[in-house]
């Protein structure tokens, strides 16, 4: 079976905890298979560190099939590395060359403090959702699922926005550490569906207010988030959110 033949130098961010300072540490790896995923390469590194009596590198990961949104590595200057539309766990070593030096850092943003090594705290995203990213419908309140027909084009657009996995790559890559793509994806999904209408203007105001409170930066429309998003969430969502926000602030009578 494949033990590979790639030799790599890793520069990995090591940080003991949220209070201590961190630094990049060099590690040499050999016999890496091009068929390994990036995280499996880290498994190899950690196994070596444990065997040497050193502390393994802490990083977030779970499903390893690109859907849970837990993995979060800033690889050679890009979130989730150089390939488009993949998460770190779906990035494979064949995307690199023998002899490469790879720099791996955690997501960096004031709103995503580093917990340890490459793991960051993304609970700000949960609080944004808790502030309004839902439809207020208690269990048992629902009418028949087909009672409200939804034009396919609208349902599909809502689905595309809903495909967000909440990984935070948008924040990580944005030069302003802005969370607008994440927030607008949820605002859009619900604004596009009839079920989201009753709370449409309330929702956008609450979520934006929470986003600001968390300390994310402002959007300057560079488009980096869209380019790096592993799920291809579109900038159109940000425009839609802005539109709804102005409608909410200037037209809607509901004070939030």
């Amino acid at each position: 079976m494949s033990t590979g033949n790639m030799n790599l130098t890793l520069q990995v961010w090591r940080q003991k905890n949220s209070k201590s300072a961190g630094k990049l540490v060099d590690y040499k790896l050999s016999d890496i298979s091009p068929d390994m995923s990036f995280l499996e390469m880290f498994d190899v590194l950690n196994e070596q560190l444990i065997n040497k009596g050193e502390e393994p590198v802490v990083f977030d990961h779970d499903c390893r099939e690109g859907i849970c949104g837990m993995c979060s590595m800033f690889i050679n200057g890009q979130p989730h590395g150089p390939k488009d539309l993949v998460t770190t766990c779906q990035l494979h070593m064949r995307s690199f060359n023998d002899g490469d030096t790879i720099v791996v850092e955690p997501w960096r943003a004031k709103a995503f403090p580093v917990i340890k090594d490459l793991a960051v705290d993304r609970s700000a995203f949960d609080r944004i959702i808790a502030s309004g990213g839902f439809v207020s419908v208690n269990t048992g309140n629902a009418q028949d699922a087909n009672a409200l027909p939804i034009p396919k084009i609208q349902a599909d657009a809502a689905f595309e926005a809903a495909a967000c996995i909440g990984c935070g790559a948008c924040v990580a890559t944005c030069k302003n550490a802005s969370a607008m793509l994440f927030v607008s994806a949820k605002v859009s999904q619900l604004a596009l569906l009839p079920q989201g209408q009753p709370e449409r203007y309330r929702r956008v105001q609450s979520m934006v207010a929470q986003m600001d409170e968390e300390g994310f930066g402002n959007c300057t429309n560079t488009g980096a988030c869209e380019a790096e998003c592993p799920k291809g969430i579109s900038l159109e969502n940000i425009a839609r959110m802005n539109r709804d926000y102005f409608s909410a602030k200037f037209i809607s009578e509901e004070e939030v």
């Binding site: 419908v137 048992g140 699922a145 349902a155 809502a158 689905f159 079920q195």
Partner: peptide
């Protein structure tokens, strides 16, 4: 299905 659609789950149409 009713509950999920009411929550805004975008099932295929």
């Amino acid at each position: 299905i009713d509950q999920c659609v009411a929550q805004g789950v975008p099932l295929a149409r």
